[in-house]
């Protein structure tokens, strides 16, 4: 589904990703771990197409399509979803309005009919329920005055509603207490399916207790330096990252 080959990318002139390779197949969950400054968040941003995150070499395809040929909104419509580390507020624009605009735009891109208001509302309510968000959140401005945990749950709520094929979670666990973490994980696990893939970027192992990955990759200095099964996360938890950095060096 997602195929990353020798990806080199820079942010404001500084090279952050230095030849990254990753192959993600439908139904798989890949965890990307690594120390601070390794380029974890850059990866999500480059894939989703944030401004100033420039690919300088390599290729990335999503179901065979070169993503760098696509605008960020087209990548989204192709089924790529990025759950933000720091979800931003859009005052005065209700969550509902925002999500309807999102679904309408994506449907239009795909040439399918957008769901009618009734079924959309029904789904939106279900998605809220799944992440323990009160339905009032649908009427509130996007992330406006939400607590940190509510913002993250709101991201997962959006993900459930939009049903993307590739979900990238950018340190979704940061700043979450254990209860919120479980709620977020439950939402993600409900979405797991044979035709959907996840890339879970995290600094800590604890999220992976709840979202159990098929593969764990260690990102250090812009490259994947080690890959393994879920047990690699536990090893990292015990030993930290420094031994790997030394190993590479």
């Amino acid at each position: 589904m997602l195929s990353i080959n020798n990806l080199v990318a820079e942010v404001e002139g500084k090279t952050i990703l230095k030849g990254l390779n990753l192959e993600v197949k439908p139904g798989e969950v890949h965890a990307i771990m690594g120390p601070n400054g390794a380029g974890k968040s850059t990866l999500g941003n480059v894939l989703a197409g944030r401004e100033n995150y420039e690919k300088t070499d390599g290729t990335v395809t999503l179901d065979g399509k070169d993503i760098f040929e696509l605008e960020p909104e087209e990548r989204a419509a192709e089924g790529m979803f990025l759950a933000f580390q720091y979800p931003v507020e859009i005052p005065g624009v209700s969550n509902l309005e925002f999500l309807k605009a999102s679904i309408d735009a994506i449907s239009k891109y795909r040439g399918v009919e957008a769901p009618d208001s009734v079924s959309f509302m029904k789904k939106a309510r279900e998605a809220c329920k799944a992440v323990n968000l009160d339905q009032n959140f649908l009427k509130r401005g996007v992330n406006e005055g939400f607590s940190g945990g509510e913002k993250k749950r709101n991201e997962i709520m959006q993900m459930m509603l939009l049903e993307p094929k590739l979900c990238i979670l950018d340190e979704t666990d940061s700043g979450l207490d254990i209860d919120a973490l479980q709620v977020v994980a439950k939402g993600v696990n409900e979405l797991r399916s044979p035709d959907r893939a996840f890339v879970v970027v995290t600094h800590y192992q604890r999220l992976l207790d709840y979202i159990v990955p098929d593969y764990v990759h260690v990102l250090a200095d812009g490259k994947i330096v080690k890959s393994g099964g879920k047990e690699l996360a536990l090893e990292l938890e015990k030993k930290g990252y420094s031994w790997l950095e030394q190993e590479v060096a």
Binding site: A48, G49, R50, E51, E71, P72, E73, A76, A77, F81, L82, F84, P87, V88, I90, F98, L99, A101, S102, I103, A105, I106, Y109, V142, Q158, L162
Partner: peptide, 8 residues
């Protein structure tokens, strides 16, 4: 970017 990432 948030809007665009949601397809808008």
């Amino acid at each position: 970017f948030l809007c665009q990432q949601r397809g808008i």
